[in-house]
Write a protein that binds this DNA or RNA. Structure first.
Length: 853
RNA sequence: GCGGGUGUGGCGGAAUGGUAGACGCCGGGGACUUAAAAUCCCCUGAGCUUUGCUCGUGCGGGUUCGAGUCCCGCCACCCGCACCA
């Protein structure tokens, strides 16, 4: 081949993508006798266009999948669409398009975009969760869970927009108001469907221990989320004569309780008969329902006038309604210990309640005042009668024992984890397969009536749930009594869809969700890759769903993802212009100029130089802002199609793998992708210099080639792509410098194989041009000769006073005494020593000598 | 607020407690060219009294012969918080 022919990505990409399709190179065969490897990336929501973050995610998985194939595995690497969800309904409302049409058009476009990147995917297993042949099986599984007693209904609160007559997602509530209507959001109670994830709390917690190949941080986050805590539940006697059960994880601090607080929904609060109390409860109901909002909101309380008797001191403690107490956790009522809980501290400060100290560093500190905040740490008990002097843990045990003796309560394990509410009052989701009948109650739909499909003729121009107001859809006969019934009009949370898609990828019979034996062949997923934002919800729900199916005997796997990797985001600089406005602060008479943000510009609108940026249109300078996650509102996005057009798929893929460690954020830069593109062409020139007939050996080069093959393999297996990239750069430089020889020719061919998982199009082109047989995608990973990995000479660092003074070369495995002698003989070392007395010499064989004076 | 993470040159980053800055980008200088692009070569943490020395991994302490790495205390930024996916 001619080395002056430039590599043309546009034609090569299409040619090889077509060749892989034709040969069905990436089709996974369940019946293969090879060891199986299931590589999976989190499937995308079809929002319209592939985001650069997807490109990064899927490129990582692709490199691993191609490498696994080269190392003799039968690889399952599928792709599909998490196709239900709110954006489709938003599009329907804004543009008047049907959610299904919008979603399917998006899928088609995004599939074409993924194909352009040359991913080694088995497209024959593609699935979309919005199609009845997927969600029909999901309905069947939901009915199975119901049979197993894992599904139930209960009242639960939602954000209600009184103008749009609709339930709002948390993200649709902005400052307590509906995002579209601007109306004040209310909390409203609805009967909703729940999955009993709490039945599996202990299992899900214990199971984390077996997930050694999950990041510690994700395991920790799930552990905290499940939140197992040992505490005490006991009852206060109220002034009205009733008993008020409270739950606390700090029973040791009971002598520090200075008031009692209940949630706004608590019966004690609801039972109050005064306008002031009702007003306060209404106030609590405004605003969002999220934990973050509740806990950052200003602490507010209402004194009910009721008092509670302290079980040991007999003191009367005031009972408040407090906006930071959650009805869903514990008993919905707490004993408040302001000295040792920050929320209680803030509340007590605001309402002038006492803040006694009951834990201190030592007994002498019993009278020490608080320094503006609660102290939640360890210490010994003080001012606590019979607990004085005890450590926190001992005091907990003691108080639980006493309360149990009194018959007033008991030690109790409480979980933070709550049951999973799966009801959504929306159209674009899986219909929940139940029928409401006046005589029979809630009746499961018969399995042979599945799939219960969504009606197509819906409109989104009127407020409210389209399923609820559809003229015919919900009317159906009761399967039990044959009388008039009404379909459930709630649909399932889209997290349900993503809780079993990895099973459907592995096995997709038409008549059932999956086949048990086929699941056993592929699961668990060997490597799962996705964003850290899914660390808790998606991954916990998928683990739960898998365990629930195993519990019912439908599958034999308990943990779906053997190894998890969470990749970082793709970020980009922001560009913006400023304008000067005249402002006047309240009370000031003069206006003064203030610089403020005018608008953001997209990277395509500007020219970036080393010291700034200017507008393409008129050369006006713009500000270069922080490097942040790409987002449409900040306009700092790059479109994968555009960059593939310009640089080709391989340069884009290479960029995704270069520099930044995969778990960290990757800053996109024009200069960076230019550099990658240059490297693609540089490699192409090197491949052009392949000479199959060259003679002669170059042992140093052989060694480096084998070292690099071994290292790159290790790097890919540990997903250290940036390190693999650096090693390939190094080897490329060495091969370029080497004289012609058989070693060099072999090195060039090996290099093509090393880059094949990362730059598959270039590699195929080179492979063919070198006259190699078949596709490089089908070729075996180069073998490593272990004898070539052993070094015979090493560089020894010589330190004096812990600082490097000299380096010397010594044979590998040289004796300590020899190294010491060589080090002391060094002229530079002698100069540094300057006659000082050598007190000690530390020798680390093959590494360094440190001389201590 | 609670939970989790990150912090090393101009930039992305590398470094089993053992030579800090591999590799890439940017920048500077040179070669080739009528010229440009492309390509190739060299230099590139800071400072200084420059055969070399000192400082330097967010900040302040500590352990160690030796700390980017381990320990304690801070700061800044990022992510999650149950109806976004």
């Amino acid at each position: 081949m001619s080395s002056d022919t430039r590599f043309d990505p546009a034609s090569a990409d299409a040619r090889w993508q077509h060749a892989w399709d034709q040969a069905q190179t990436f089709r996974a065969d369940s019946n293969s006798i090879k060891p199986k490897s299931y590589v999976l990336e989190m499937f995308p929501y079809p929002s319209g266009r592939i985001h650069i973050g997807h490109v990064r995610n899927y490129t990582m998985g692709d490199v691993l999948a191609r490498y696994k194939k080269a190392t003799g595995h039968e690889v399952l690497h599928p792709m599909g669409w998490d196709a239900f969800g709110m954006p489709a309904e938003n599009a329907a409302m804004e543009k008047g398009v049907h959610p299904g049409g919008w979603t399917r058009a998006n899928i088609e476009h995004m599939k074409a975009q993924l194909k352009r990147l040359g991913f080694a995917l088995d497209w024959s297993r593609e699935l979309a969760t919005c199609e009845p042949d997927y969600y029909g099986h999901e309905q069947a599984l939901f009915l199975d869970l119901y049979e197993a007693g894992l599904v139930y209904r209960k009242e639960s609160e939602v954000n209600w927009d009184p103008v749009d007559m609709t339930v709002l997602a948390n993200e649709q509530v902005i400052d307590g108001k509906g995002w579209r209507s601007g109306a004040e959001v209310e909390k409203r109670k609805l009967n909703q469907w729940f999955l009993k994830i709490t039945d599996f709390a202990e299992e899900l917690l214990d199971g984390l221990g077996s997930l050694e190949n999950w990041p510690d941080k994700v395991r920790l986050m799930q552990e905290n989320w499940i939140g197992k805590s040992r505490g005490l539940e006991f009852s206060f006697d109220l002034s009205g004569g009733e008993k008020l059960p409270v739950y606390t994880t700090r029973p040791d601090t009971i002598f520090g309780a200075s008031f009692v607080a209940v949630a706004a929904d608590h019966p004690v609060a609801q039972g109050l008969d005064s306008d002031a109390a009702r007003d306060f409860i209404a106030l609590c109901k405004r605003g969002g329902t999220t934990a973050a909002e509740l806990e950052t909101a200003e602490k507010l309380g209402f004194d009910t006038g009721i008092t509670a008797t302290h079980p040991f001191t007999g003191a009367d403690l005031p009972v408040y309604i407090a906006n930071f107490v959650l009805m869903d956790y514990g008993t919905g009522a707490i004993m408040a210990v302001p000295g040792h809980d920050q929320r209680d501290f803030e509340f007590a400060t605001k309402y002038g309640l006492p803040i006694p100290r009951v834990v201190a560093a030592s007994a002498e500190d019993a009278g020490k005042p608080f320094d503006g905040e609660a102290e939640a740490g360890e210490g010994v008990l003080v001012n606590s009668d019979f607990l004085d002097g005890m450590a926190v843990e001992d005091a907990k045990r003691e108080i639980i024992a006493r309360i149990e003796q009194q018959g007033r309560g008991q030690g109790k394990t409480v979980w933070r984890l709550r049951d999973w509410g799966v009801s959504r009052q929306r159209y674009w989701g899986t219909p929940i397969p139940f029928i409401h009948c006046d005589t029979c109650g809630v009746v499961p739909a018969p399995k042979d009536s599945l799939p219960i499909t969504l009606p197509e003729d819906v409109d989104f121009q009127t407020p409210g749930n389209p399923l609820l107001r559809h003229p015919t859809w919900k009317h159906v006969d009761c399967p039990k009594c044959g009388g008039k019934g009404i379909r459930e009009t709630d649909t399932l949370d889209t997290f349900v869809d993503s809780s079993w898609y990895f099973l459907r990828f592995a096995s997709q019979p038409a008549d059932k969700p999956f086949d048990k034996d086929e699941i056993a062949k592929w699961l668990p997923v060997e490597q799962y890759i996705g964003g850290i934002e899914h660390a808790i919800l998606h991954l916990l729900y998928a683990r739960f769903w898998t365990r629930a199916l195993a519990h019912m005997g439908q599958i034999d796997v308990k943990e779906p993802f053997a190894s998890l990797f969470t990749q970082g985001m793709v970020t980009h600089e922001t560009y913006y212009s400023t304008k000067t406005v005249q402002v006047r602060a309240e009370g000031e008479t003069e206006y003064r100029p203030m610089k403020t943000l005018d608008r953001f510009y997209s990277p395509e609108e500007i020219i970036r130089t080393s010291d700034g940026a200017t507008l393409k249109d008129n050369g006006a300078p713009v500000e270069v802002g922080r490097v942040i996650k790409m987002s449409k509102s900040k306009k700092n996005v790059v479109d994968p199609d555009t960059i593939i057009d310009t640089y080709g798929a391989d340069a884009v893929r290479w960029f995704m793998l270069s520099d930044s460690p995969p778990e960290r954020d990757l800053p996109w830069s024009e200069a960076g992708i230019e550099g990658c593109s240059r490297f693609v062409h540089r490699l192409w020139r090197l491949f052009g210099a392949f000479d199959g007939g060259a003679r002669g050996a170059d042992q140093a080069l052989d060694r480096q080639v084998h070292r690099t093959v071994a290292a790159v393999a290790e790097d890919i297996e540990s997903l250290g792509f940036n390190k693999a990239v650096a090693r390939i750069y190094e080897l490329t430089g060495a091969v370029e410098k080497a004289q012609g020889s058989a070693s060099r020719s072999a090195a060039v061919r090996t290099l093509a194989q090393l880059v094949a998982p990362m730059m598959p199009h270039l590699a195929e082109e080179a492979w063919a041009a070198m006259g190699q047989q078949g596709l490089v995608a089908d070729a075996d990973w180069p073998t490593v000769d272990p004898t070539l990995l052993v070094e015979d000479e090493v560089t020894i660092a010589v330190q004096h006073k812990g600082k490097l003074r000299d380096t010397l070369t010594a044979p590998k495995g040289a004796a300590r005494e020899d190294l010491e002698r060589l080090a002391l003989a060094s002229e530079k070392v002698q100069r540094s020593l300057d006659g000082a007395e050598v007190r000690k010499v530390i020798v680390v064989p093959d590494r360094l000598v440190n001389i201590v004076t």
